[in-house]
Design a protein around this nucleic acid. Structure first.
Length: 106
DNA sequence: TACGTGACCCAGA
DNA sequence: ATCTGGGCCACGT
């Protein structure tokens, strides 16, 4: 049995549309474990460089907490800005506007 | 086998 | 408004 959690986080993250972002808690909640938001970040950390736009996943405050784990600290912000997202001081300005809620979709 | 760690979130003071 | 503490599940050593 494969790690459901890992796969779920993977799927949801890959389903994030361009120019949109989401939070770890949202993904965790979508999976069914709102309390386990920490594992979402852990899962992404395992898959940072795979084909998963982990850079579109930020914390509840819209802060790029995980940028430290990317290849380069600027990578995450650069990618998000490239998507059209406004970031300042490692924080998304129009976070609410760019927020996207993950859903289960086969 | 057991303990520690982690890209977080919520509730209380 | 800010600060502190607790909880959660899975993985690594």
């Amino acid at each position: 049995m494969e790690s459901n959690f890992f796969e779920k986080v993977f799927e949801l993250t890959k389903q994030i549309p361009v120019g949109k972002v989401t939070s770890y808690g949202a993904i965790a909640k979508a999976i069914g474990s709102p309390k386990s938001a920490r594992m979402v970040g852990w899962a992404l950390n395992k898959s940072t460089i795979h084909n998963v736009p982990a850079h579109r996943v930020v914390n509840r405050n819209g802060l790029l907490t995980g940028k430290n784990h990317f290849a380069n600290m600027n990578t995450m912000q650069e990618l998000l800005e490239n998507e059209g997202i406004i970031i300042q001081k490692n924080k998304i300005i129009n976070f609410k506007e760019c927020f996207w809620q993950p859903k289960f979709k086969t």
